[in-house]
Write a protein that binds this DNA or RNA. Structure first.
Length: 556
RNA sequence: GGGCUAGUAGCUCAGCUGGCAGAGCAGCUGACUUUUAAUCAGCGGGUCGUAGGUUCGAACCCUACCUGGCUCACCA
């Protein structure tokens, strides 16, 4: 599912209402951002919110924060009865500055340094360009999350001449822009100033594709370009488009004006004084007659165990796809919705995954509880609002309605392993046992897949087990022979044993004086090759006596 | 050098634009028990980084400082 441009997605207002009314329930940070945006544009019929990322490397989970931040604010705006247009600008007219280490074709990439990433061939050979490869991977990955912006490719916009007016305005106001940037420099104590003959222009040679260019401007639509790399000279008519573009600091405010952007977040690298947002604010006002969008600065996301900022140029980057292998889409959204944008946090792949799922499940239950006018209502409301925003497709949660059945991650991991990862079989088990309504099966299977991925790829050794495929014969201590014999008899007598029936017999065994603490390790060893394991009755019922007996009998 | 941000319970974080410090996990106690860090009930736990200031009232606003993180200075 690639955004090929031209497709437009609208968020349909979920409810109508007076936008000036302040509903205390709408109290999430995305709600505050939405309110702020509406206050800045009180008469707008439609609000444009924007995200933008450079696909100069793997688009990772840190970049994702930009997108989810906009999506959540778009939802909040829609909840206020506003039409929202969510655009996503791929800054793929960027320069290839570094050779990505993890890519093949290192030689080709090295030769391509200085070219536009939209023109660098895809080293993996699966897409039209290096940029297109990164873009496709990301666009595909966010589909399951219910995020559907209108994707815009900067290189296509520039080449088609769409920004001709914007470029001309920048060139004609080059002095003003220089002054704005220089003023910001001085204010922050920077020593360097922009040269007096500097033009807000960048681009690529149309002969050799490199970005080492010199410009002169005729004051209207024509720019003369000289390539320092290959010596090529040409005159470019801005109206016809081509390979010229604005440098980042000017490109950003130009696009704000072009798209009438009212809200756009930024990473903290843009957020400081003298940084790009700061100067863009002045430029959009003085050159493009538009006001800077409402802004939320967001902090970085790391992956637990990797630490620090995620950089696309380093290896071991965690992307959305990787996260979705372990986190259900709604759980992932919920994580990002739960943290305020300006807090840094880590996506965990270790034991914390269990805790996060438990927290999420608890939040779901809390959100569905009926309100009772008590102190806890506020927590119920908060949980409800976060979950509404986190839901993959917009939905409202009615207090007092039945919560979906969610099987706890830990429990699921146990049963799933007993079933060797057979998700359908595990689902049948839960349905038959009455723990899972048939209606919640699809959701269950999605979670089960995540659990299994986690068990296989990330779970600590202690957590993993496999039922023996071949029996071993052990010298069973004298004291455990009797109990083992009894267990075998119990299983032989009841080939269709259930968890409950086995549980009852085990209880009887325990009451008859058997020391279960000493006995269980013997059984676990015979079945699993370890001295601890899932609850015995569950394990035996799921694996069935038919499978358990051959593993137990040889040691009698 | 400039800027931003964080510092709240052992840990991870809330604290809704000033109104009695809070959740989860961990810990402790008890109950129960068929043991992957089971379940249920209950309890304890914080000088809100430091020092001042504003206010009837400050975790929240102001000032200075300490510590950590990040970021900016013709790269997008």
């Amino acid at each position: 599912m690639h955004g090929s441009g031209g497709r437009i997605w609208w968020y349909v207002p979920a409810m109508t209402g007076d936008r000036s009314e302040r509903d205390p329930y709408l109290n999430h940070w995305a709600d505050h951002a939405a309110d702020k945006t509406l206050r800045a544009h009180p008469d707008a019929k439609r609000i444009v919110v924007a995200a933008g990322i450079t696909p100069s490397g793997v688009v990772h989970i840190g970049n994702f924060r930009e997108v989810i931040t906009v999506d959540l604010v778009a939802r909040a705006l829609a909840d206020r009865g506003v039409d929202v247009r969510f655009i996503y600008s791929w800054d793929d007219f960027d320069v290839l500055r570094k050779v990505p280490k993890d890519a093949p074709e290192q030689e080709m990439l090295t030769e391509s340094l200085g070219k536009s990433i939209a023109d660098v061939p895809d080293p993996w050979g699966t897409h039209d360009s290096y940029a297109a490869h990164n873009i496709a991977r990301f666009e595909d990955s966010i589909g399951p999350l219910g995020i559907e912006p209108e994707f815009i490719r900067q290189h296509a916009m520039y080449r088609a001449g769409k920004y001709a007016d914007g470029i001309r305005a920048a060139l004609q106001n080059a002095g003003k822009i220089r002054d704005l940037i220089n003023a910001a420099r001085e204010a922050t104590g920077a020593r360097t100033r922009i040269a007096d003959d500097w033009l807000p222009l960048a681009g690529f040679c149309s002969t050799c594709g490199k970005d080492d260019l010199g410009f002169s401007y005729d004051g209207d639509w024509t720019v003369s370009v000289h390539c320092n790399a290959c010596g090529h000279d040409e005159a470019v008519d801005l109206r016809k488009g081509g390979n010229l573009k604005l440098p980042w600091r000017v490109d950003w405010p130009m696009r704000w004006g072009y798209e009438q952007v009212a809200f756009e977040p930024g990473g903290k690298d843009h957020s400081s004084a003298g940084g790009s947002y700061d100067t863009a604010k002045g430029i959009v006002r003085d050159v493009y007659s538009w006001s800077a969008p409402q802004y939320v600065g967001y902090d970085f996301v790391s992956a637990k165990g990797q630490g620090g900022k995620l950089s696309s140029s380093k290896g071991g980057v965690v992307d959305v796809t990787t996260c979705l292998e372990v986190y259900e889409p709604e759980v992932l959204r919920w994580l990002f919705a739960g943290y305020r944008p300006n807090t840094e946090f880590a996506i965990s792949f270790d034991l914390d995954v269990i805790k996060l799922y438990e927290d999420y499940d608890r939040a779901v239950r809390l959100a569905h509880e009926a309100e009772d006018g008590g102190k806890k209502d506020k927590k119920r409301q908060t949980a409800r609002r976060v979950l509404e925003l986190a839901s993959v497709s917009p939905r409202k949660i009615v207090p007092g309605s039945t919560a979906p059945t969610l099987i706890a991650f830990r429990h699921l991991s146990t049963v799933l392993q007993t079933y060797d990862g057979d998700i359908r079989g595990t689902a049948d088990y839960f349905v038959n046992s009455g723990e899972l309504p048939e209606a919640d099966r699809a959701r269950f299977e999605a979670r089960a897949q995540c659990v299994w991925n986690w068990v296989e790829r990330y779970a600590p050794e202690d957590f993993r087990y496999r039922i023996r495929t071949e029996a071993v014969t052990r010298e069973v201590p004298e004291a455990q022979r009797g109990p083992l014999q009894s267990l075998v008899e119990i299983l032989e007598a009841d080939p269709n044993a259930t968890e409950a029936s086995i549980g009852e017999k085990m209880k009887a065994l325990s009451q008859s004086g058997v020391d279960m603490k000493a006995f269980f390790p013997v059984v676990y060893d015979l079945l699993l090759g370890r001295d601890r394991g899932p609850k015995m009755s569950t394990l035996l019922a799921i694996m069935t006596p038919a499978r358990a007996l051959p593993l137990l009998r040889p040691s009698l």
